[in-house]
Design a binder for these strands. Structure first.
Length: 379
DNA sequence: AATGCCGGGAT
DNA sequence: ATCCCGGCATT
């Protein structure tokens, strides 16, 4: 199974056309005569990649792991504070709307619809098929550091905006906008906010390109006076706590200091907050256990990645806000097909394929193996 | 040409 | 759901 790399250094020079198989090299190298030439002691042996790399890697990387976990801000899913906050917002908005519209309706009690359906698509990377002979697992080891990231991202950024957005909702004409995305149904009170939501969360675009092709417009609709739709969306409300109507403002949120820099910087990197503590772990790790050239590649790529990242960060501040928002009322017609999907710009991060190479395909993350968007080295 | 990955087929 | 690949956009 694994006896492959060792022979790589080849005894002498004759590297058999083993791996040339363009298609599935991994399967080929099953039988390696492994001629243990007594006399000629190649220094290839010692560098064997297999030897419980786990053990070796543990102390170094492991040390950083645990502490970080307990250390960094606890924003786990359990607490779901952000979500709740948002709910409150929605409710508040609802209340406002209803008030300004007609004093008699209302009944917006305890909402229960989950706001963020797109928070889970996580894990995958960490898991390692039990079937892989338990050999050479550093892969999983390295992937783990990047995994602990998850719990809040897309929303966080978004949340910041939300504030300003919500703030100005007052003056607007009581419109509510609902996301029409599959099972999202998110409701915001401003069109621009909604556009941003869609752009960020669904279209996967970043905040940078503030100009939209109007693409987002297809994915949300405005619900005005029609309380029906609203109620529909909020079905599951329990008249239980009527007093909870207008909650005591935002529970948490620290608007004071994260004013300019932090927030702006963080935006572009929406998917992984932990990055702050560990400088792009995903990029460092792979090179870590990478073979010989690992260092070189890792170095250059690291630098590149960094620079590009930072440059992007610099671009971020380009968010203006064209006050357009011409009260669109009707959606053309929820396209049977979400129109041409904007193929992703393609991230600059090196993906499994590049990092591990065609051979070692077994080290790729599943997504990569399936020619899907890489999940290990996300952009 | 190599790479990343969407869309869709097979199981 | 899992696995795979044709084919296309991008580099």
């Amino acid at each position: 199974m694994e006896a492959e790399r060792p022979p790589a250094s080849g005894s002498g020079c004759g590297r058999p056309p083993l791996r040339t198989a363009g298609r599935d090299p991994a399967t080929a190298p099953v039988s390696v005569p492994a001629p243990p030439q007594g006399p000629a002691v190649e220094f290839a042996l010692p560098q064997e990649p297999e030897p419980r790399a786990a053990d070796l890697g543990a102390p170094g990387a492991g040390a950083a792991g645990p502490p970080t976990l307990s250390a960094h801000i606890p924003v786990p899913a359990h607490r779901t504070p952000p979500g709740k906050a948002r709910l409150d917002e929605v409710m508040a908005a609802t209340a406002l709307t209803s008030l300004s519209t007609s004093p008699l309706l209302l009944g917006a009690p305890g909402v229960t619809f989950s706001t963020e359906p797109c928070l889970e698509p996580w894990r995958e990377a960490p898991v390692q098929p039990p079937g892989s002979g338990g050999s050479w697992d550093p892969a999983s080891d390295q992937s783990s550091p990047s995994t602990p990231s998850p719990p809040l991202p897309p929303e966080a950024a978004h949340f910041l905006f939300g504030e300003s957005t919500l703030r100005k909702r007052k003056s607007s004409l009581q419109g509510l906008f609902q996301c029409l995305w599959k099972r999202c149904g998110k409701v915001l009170s401003s069109a621009s906010g909604m556009q941003r939501h869609i752009r960020l969360v669904h279209l996967g675009r970043q905040a940078e390109l503030e100009q939209s092709d109007g693409e987002e417009d297809f994915y949300y609709t405005e619900l005005d006076s029609g309380m029906d739709s609203l109620t529909d969306g909020l079905s599951g409300l329990t008249p239980g706590s009527p007093t909870a109507l207008v909650p005591p403002a935002f529970p948490r949120l620290e608007p004071p200091e994260p004013l300019a820099l932090p927030s702006l910087l963080r935006l572009p990197a929406l998917p992984l907050p932990p990055v702050l503590s560990t400088t792009s772990p995903s990029q460092v790790c792979p090179s870590d256990h990478a073979h010989q050239v690992g260092e070189v590649t890792g170095g250059s790529q690291g630098a590149r990645g960094h620079s590009s990242a930072s440059s992007q960060g610099c671009l971020a501040p380009v968010r203006l806000e064209p006050q357009t928002t011409p009260v669109r009322a009707c959606v053309p017609a929820l396209p049977a097909k979400p129109s041409a999907n904007p193929r992703k710009p393609r991230g600059d991060a090196k993906k499994c394929r590049k990092v591990y190479g065609m051979d070692h395909r077994d080290l790729w993350c599943t997504a990569c193996r399936w020619k899907k968007a890489c999940q290990r080295f996300l952009d």
